[in-house]
Amino acid sequence: MLSDLLPPALVALLLDSILQTATMVGVAALLSTLVGLPLGVLLVVTGKGQFLERPALNRVIGTIVNLIRSTPFIILMVAIIPLTRLLAGTTVGTAAAIVPLTIAITPLYARLTEAAMREVDQSLIEAAQAMGATPLQIIWKVLLPEALPGILAGQTVTLVSLVGYSAMAGTVGGGGLGDLGIRFGYQRFMPEVMVAVVIVLVVIVQSIQMAGDWAARTVNHRVARSRDRT
């Protein structure tokens, strides 16, 4: 079916590109979660009136996060080329694209998790303190589990943004679906390739959104669910 529309060589290219995009998105998502989640926690617990209030630290993290978030991705990508070379050993290809992707998406993820954790009722934190919980226990046993639906929703937004960013990263030699679309669809005047790339991207984004919504719903016990319907 697909081979009717696209020559086999292009189908192979398309599959390769999907794999590259998945790698970029997957690895960058993993790394940004590992860095962004602790950052989000720090942004919350060091905030004003919180149990680990540290105004200076809070401002420093907040400023760095805002700086990165206000830099357009395409500029960030170019600006950090020396760092990319240092970390990935090269500045082109999928591995090299992961560096700017991670750096660009981590602040977004940190802000989204921060927002999710701010939604947690302050009185729950008070209750945990009254039980004699350590700060780490409050974070681990109260803050994160209670914010989990919001954190998962943030994760979904992050993944979708990553797919978009990864297409951009493709244009500067990162490979992946964006790269395929530009090189074949645009530069070689092959609109069918462009259409195929767009369709694949739509399917990927849609799947991420559906999976994310499902996951967030599954862990959300804040709304009553009739058990026989699910």
């Binding site: 009722d121 009185s123 729950l124 008070e126 209750a127 303190q129 009254a130 039980m131 004699g132 919980a133 350590t134 109260v142 589990p145 209670e146 989990l148 862990v219 016990h221 804040r222």
Partner: peptide, 20 residues
């Protein structure tokens, strides 16, 4: 302080239960 707090239970106006 944490161990002293364990000798003092507390209940709240809006219950303060974890929804999760």
């Amino acid at each position: 302080l944490r161990s002293a707090r364990r000798d003092i239970g507390m209940i709240f106006q809006h219950f303060s239960l974890m929804s999760s």
